[in-house]
């Protein structure tokens, strides 16, 4: 086995030398300044950093939702940075799942229809039992026909997770998935994410500002001013908070 295939097999996603800047008020503001990072299959990674550190931009580039100015993104063997828009959209549909902080669901569709949506867009109709099972797995059995407005914030997040699970994504990206939730509901969501990693082999990348949330991950990446500055393995809430406080001091 040569080295490339072993890398493909080992990593669900990786990025090399990512640079991204945005034009604001006539000048370019660099947001990512050379980020290189790898995500092993079946692991749970939290990305943390102060506001403006570039964590959300990193997530968007990794998820193929934003294009880096320079650098490469790979999902297994696929060179994401080089794909034309249409192919990328298709690949994203099949390999990537998302959970955002809010507005995850189509407001006009029922919970079941929202779960079905990516499959439908890919041209196949997920079996009714698959949809029902996915909703049951996130604790929403019997709520198939309810619309987002009839569900609480935590329930809406869980529908988004069920949607991501049905398409069996290679990687699940979550941007502040607990940011709009109370602590108890947030913990439930984190347990769900942990469970999909442990029992279904999903790879999960989550942006968060909450050390307690980050403690559910296998590893924490700390980002400051568009650069990766530290990596914590088997993090604890306390350890993460301390590391973050250290960053604040440097900044």
């Amino acid at each position: 086995m040569n080295s490339i295939t072993s890398t493909e097999a080992e990593y669900a996603a990786r990025a090399e030398g990512l640079h991204r800047s945005y034009r604001r008020g006539g000048s370019d503001i660099p947001v990512l300044r050379g980020v290189t990072v790898e995500f092993r299959r079946g692991t749970f990674t939290a990305v943390m950093g102060p506001s403006g550190s570039g964590k959300t931009t990193l997530l968007h580039c990794l998820a193929g939702m934003d294009r880096p100015d320079r650098g490469q993104v790979w999902w297994g063997p696929a060179a994401v940075h080089a794909l034309p828009e249409r192919r990328l959209a298709r690949l994203r549909r099949e390999h990537v799942g998302f959970v955002f902080q809010a507005f995850n669901l189509m407001p006009g569709m029922t919970a079941a229809q929202n779960v079905e949506l990516p499959g439908r867009m890919a041209g196949r109709r997920p079996a009714r039992t698959t949809v029902r099972d996915a909703l049951a797995r996130v604790g929403l059995a019997g709520r198939e026909r309810q619309r987002p407005a009839q569900l609480s914030g935590g329930q809406q997040q869980r529908v988004a997770i069920a949607r991501a699970l049905v398409s069996r994504p290679r990687i699940l990206f979550a941007d502040e998935p607990t940011g709009a939730l109370d602590r108890t509901t947030g913990t439930q969501i984190l347990h769900l994410l942990r469970d999909t990693v442990d029992h279904h082999g999903t790879t999960c990348v989550m942006v968060t500002h909450d050390p307690a949330a980050a403690a559910h991950a296998d590893r924490v990446l700390l980002l400051t001013d568009g650069r990766l500055v530290a990596e914590l393995h088997h993090p604890t809430s306390h350890g993460v908070a301390e590391a973050l406080a250290g960053l604040g001091g440097e900044a």
Partner: peptide, 15 residues
């Protein structure tokens, strides 16, 4: 936002 969500879920503009 609905349109943005659809695009993030893998729909193209044309879709």
């Amino acid at each position: 936002r609905e349109f943005a969500l659809l695009r993030l879920l893998g729909a193209t503009r044309t879709d």
